[in-house]
Design a protein around this nucleic acid. Structure first.
Lengths: 200, 200, 200, 200
DNA sequence: GACTAACCGAGACGGTACGTCTGGTCTTAAG
DNA sequence: CTTAAGACCAGACGTACCGTCTCGGTTAGTC
C-alpha cells in the first residue's frame, strides 16, 4: 500500500549507458543498510530495497542475486577490521580485541554480522563468503598471537593459529548467545591464561 | 463450502473433543521433520507442514505460533543429549563429547540444531529456548569437567564452568563453519591441554 | 489455554434436561441481532454469535442450520407487520402503508429485510421463507385494496391482487436501491392513481 | 520455491511490460464467468478465479479489488442492453421489453444480475455501480414510454419516467422472487393499462 | 434410585478463503 | 547494454470462519 507517492518528485537516476551505475549501487546499499537498521532482517527484502532505493528489481537481482549477497555487501561496506595492536602481553592484546569486536557487534552495522552467520547456515554462497572472511580475520589474530610467542610468552608447543581459533570461538559464542556485555578482559584471561608460561 | 466430502474416504484424525489430540501433534512433528530432511529449512513452511500432516493451519498456529517454535519442537523430539562418561582423564572425556556431538550434528536430525542457532539470531522466542538448552548442556559439561577437577587434574584456579564454556564454543564454531570433520581428540587436546597440570 | 479464568464468574446457562432451553434461544437471537446492528451482515457469523451468546456452536447449528436461517429468525422476532387501516380513499391508505414500511425499513431491525432479500438470491431456504412472507403481506395489502374496490373506487377490471403486486414492487425497488426517503404520498399517487375512477 | 516446473509445459501469459495485459484480463473474466455458471455465487472466489485463470492473486486484487467488482465486470461483459423498439402501442412495447429481460435474466449470464442486486445490499461499490446501470436503463425505458406519450396514448399528467419506474419495479420483483415465467404481455397490461387513455 | 436420552457450553479438528506480501521473471521505454 | 518502472505468476503468510466432532456435565422422564 504505497500510501501516497505524491511527495517523491525526485529527479531519479537514469541509466548512464551500457555500464554499471555507481550512484545506483550506492543508493541500493544505503537503502539496504537503512532497512536493516530500521526493521531488522525481516525488513531486508529485495522488494523493499528496490522501492526505497528507487531501483528496478531487475537491477537488484542482476548485481546481487540473493538476499544474502546483499547482506554481505552491506557488511563489507561497514566492517571495521580490527587492527590488532600489541599491548605488551597476550591477555591485554586479546582483551583489547574482544573490547573492539564486542563494541562493534553491538552497533547496528555490527549486528549484521550475526545475521550473516545465520544466513550462512542455509545459504551456500553466504557460507563461502563468511568462511573467507573468517580465515582472513583468523590470520590477523594468529599474527597477534605470534607476537606473544616471539616474546616467549606462550607455553611450549602452543600453535598460534590453534589458539586463535579458540579465542575466536569464544567471541562468536558470545555474539550468538547475546552475551556481548561479557567483560572483555576477564574473558581474555579465561581463554588465554592456560596457554602462557607461569609468571615467576 | 465443502458441502459433500463423500469422495474423501480418508480415515483422518478427527477432533477428540475439547482437548488437544496427541495424534495430531505427532503427525505435525513428523511432517515437519520430514520436510526439514527432504527440502531443508526453506521447505519448512507452515503451509507445507499443514498439508503434509493433513492438519488445519489453525491447528498448527494454535500450538506452534511460529516457524521457529516448530523447529524447536522438532529438535526437542530428536535431540540426543550426550551422557558424559568419565574416561579417566579430561582430554579423553572431552574428546568423547566432541565425537558424539559432531556425529549427531552431521545427521539430518542434528542439522536442525544449526538452523535453530540461525533462527535464534532474529527470533526472540527461539533465542530464549536455545539459551535454556545451552545452559542445560553447559551444566552437564561443567559437571564432567568437575570430575577432572576432583581428581586434581586441573591447574589451580581453573573454574569448570568457564572451561566448559570454552569447550562448547569450539564445538559451536565447528558446527557453524562446516568443520564437523575436525578430529575430536586433537581438538580436545588443543582446547583443554592448557588447563591441566603438567604430567610429571 | 484459559490462562486465568478468575474473572469469569459466569452463571452460564446449562442444560435444562432433554429439551430445548428457551433462555438459550433468546440469548442466541439477541446476540445475532446485536451483531447485525453493530457490525452489519458480515459481522453475523455463526462463530461470533456462538461466542457472544456463550453458546456452543453445535447448539447453534442444531436449531439454525445456516446463517440465513438465523437471519430469518432475527427478522421474524422484530418484524412489525403493518396493520392496514382504511383512510377513506386508496391513495391515502397506500401512502400510509408506504410511510410505515419505509420508516421500519430504515431502522436497524428493518434493514435486516433487505439482507434477507439478498440472501434469498442464493439460498433456497431463505428464498422459500421470504416467498411465504411476501405472499402473506401481499394478501393483507390485497385486502386493503379490496376495501377501495368495495367502495367503487377502482376502475372496472382492476384486480386487487394484481394492483397490490405493483404497489409492493414499487416499495421493494425503493428499498433495494436505497431510496427509502421517497415521499410516500407522492409515490402512492404515482403508482395508484391510474387505477382509480376519475373524480367528477 | 517452484524448484522444477518441468511437467507443466503451459505457455502461460507473462508480463508484457509495465502495462496491463489484455489477455490476462480476458482470462480472468472468462474464469469468473465459468465459475459462476458452474458453481454459482459461492463458487466465485478470488482464490478459485486466480487458480482457474492461471493468474496471480495480486493481479486479481490489483484490478478488481473485491468480489463484487468482479461480479460487475462479468455482467458488463455480457449484458445485453435491450434496444427498445416501438410496437405501435405502449402495452406491446412494454410486453416486448419484459419478454426480452425475462428471457435474458433466465440465462446464466443474466442470472448474474440478481446476484449483483443481492451483493449491492451490503457492498457500497456494487450498489453504486448498480444504481448507475439502473438509471441508464431507466432513461432508455423512459424514452420508450415517451414515444407513447408523443402519440397521445398516455392519460393526461402521466410522466414517462415515473411510469417507467413502476414498469421496472414490476420486472425486478419478478426477478427477485423467481417469477420470471410470468406472462410478459399480461404483466405489461396489468402494469400499464391504467395509464393509457381509454380506447373509444 | 438407577438409567437413559437429549441438551448444553466448550473448544479442538480438518479445511478453505481471505487479503497482503515477497520472490523472481519478463517487457517496455528512455538513455 | 543499462536503467527505472512495474505487470505478471506463484505461493506463503497469518487470520477468520466453516461445519463436524467429542467431551464432560446437566436435567427430565422412565423403569
Amino acid at each position: 500500500m504505497p500510501e501516497s507517492i505524491g511527495e517523491c518528485a525526485k529527479p531519479q537516476r537514469r541509466s548512464i549507458g551500457a555500464r554499471r551505475n555507481p550512484a545506483t549501487e550506492a543508493a541500493i546499499l544505503d537503502a539496504a543498510g537503512d532497512l536493516l537498521r530500521e526493521k531488522g532482517v525481516h525488513g531486508l527484502t529485495m522488494e523493499a530495497v528496490a522501492r526505497r532505493a528507487q531501483a528496478g528489481k531487475a537491477t537488484l537481482y542482476k548485481w546481487w542475486p540473493s538476499c544474502g549477497a546483499l547482506l554481505i555487501a552491506v557488511y563489507e561496506r561497514s566492517k571495521g577490521a580490527h587492527q590488532h595492536s600489541d599491548r605488551g602481553n597476550l591477555i591485554d592484546t586479546i582483551a583489547e580485541f574482544y573490547r573492539f569486536v564486542f563494541a562493534f557487534w553491538q552497533t547496528p552495522e555490527g549486528q549484521v554480522f550475526r545475521l550473516i552467520i545465520a544466513e550462512a547456515q542455509s545459504d551456500k554462497d553466504v557460507a563461502e563468503a563468511l568462511e573467507g572472511y573468517r580465515l582472513e580475520r583468523l590470520a590477523a589474530l594468529s599474527e597477534a598471537v605470534g607476537w606473544a610467542q616471539a616474546r616467549g610468552e606462550l607455553r611450549e608447543g602452543v600453535e598460534p593459529d590453534v589458539l586463535a581459533d579458540t579465542i575466536m570461538a569464544a567471541a562468536w559464542l558470545r555474539l550468538l548467545t547475546d552475551r556481548l556485555t561479557t567483560d572483555p578482559h576477564r574473558l581474555a584471561r579465561d581463554v588465554v591464561s592456560g596457554w602462557i608460561v607461569e609468571k615467576q
